[in-house]
């Protein structure tokens, strides 16, 4: 009798107010991707170009890069929380807002005014107001301030080895842990 086929875990990934650097670092696991693909299949992700999370069933792991800088980010994060059993915040922006959060001490209206209207080199500029554009949030927030996050992978970006360590822990059903050399905030 042949061994029963092991069901693959369903993994979704997305980048919110991030730079896709964490996704690039994820791809840096290189040939370990083959081993990963033995164990997982991808749901919504930039790798599959699937646009909605969980449409084909509940995901086992959701990996979210970037913080929350606009209303759409919040919507996508809530969709991920709803459709993923384990939600992972990956990278400095997801963990503490990161680079985008360095606008948080500035007033939003004044920023938009300076960037699109009155700033140096801007001629006849207007502040974009197309209804398709998501509204910016007053402040940039990390993910855990809006939904429950189960696992954090800090780093800008986290190294491929750190990402691999967390993924292999999760796939084996262990609580992920990063020791010296893998745990970095920079």
């Amino acid at each position: 009798m042949s061994d029963p086929v092991k069901k693959k875990l369903r993994v979704a990934t997305t980048s919110l107010a991030g730079c896709f650097g964490c996704h690039m670092s994820f791809l840096d696991i290189d040939e370990r991707l083959f081993a990963l693909l033995e164990a997982v299949e991808f749901d919504r992700s930039p790798l599959t170009d699937i646009k909605t999370v969980g449409a084909a069933g509940m995901c086992d792991i959701g990996i979210v890069e970037g913080g929350l800088c606009n209303a759409e980010n919040v919507h996508v994060l809530r969709e991920f929380r709803k459709h993923c059993r384990v939600l992972v915040a990956i990278g400095a922006c997801a963990v503490n807002g990161g680079l985008p959060a360095q606008r948080n001490h500035l007033e939003l209206g004044a920023m938009l005014e300076e960037i699109y209207h009155a700033g140096h080199g801007v001629a006849r500029g207007t502040i974009p107001n197309d209804p398709e554009l998501p509204l910016p949030l007053d402040k940039v927030h990390p993910l855990h301030e809006v939904v429950q996050i189960d696992v954090f992978i800090p780093g800008c970006p986290p190294s491929a080895d750190a990402i691999w360590a967390v993924l292999t822990d999760l796939l084996a059903g262990r609580a992920p842990a990063l020791g010296h050399g893998l745990l970095h905030y920079d």
């Binding site: 503490n96 807002g97 959060a101 402040k139 855990h144 696992v151 992978i153 990063l178």
Partner: peptide, 13 residues
């Protein structure tokens, strides 16, 4: 072994 800041950020100016 601090994996996250856990609390809400103040983001002081």
């Amino acid at each position: 072994g601090m994996m996250s800041p856990h609390y809400d950020h103040f983001y002081p100016s």
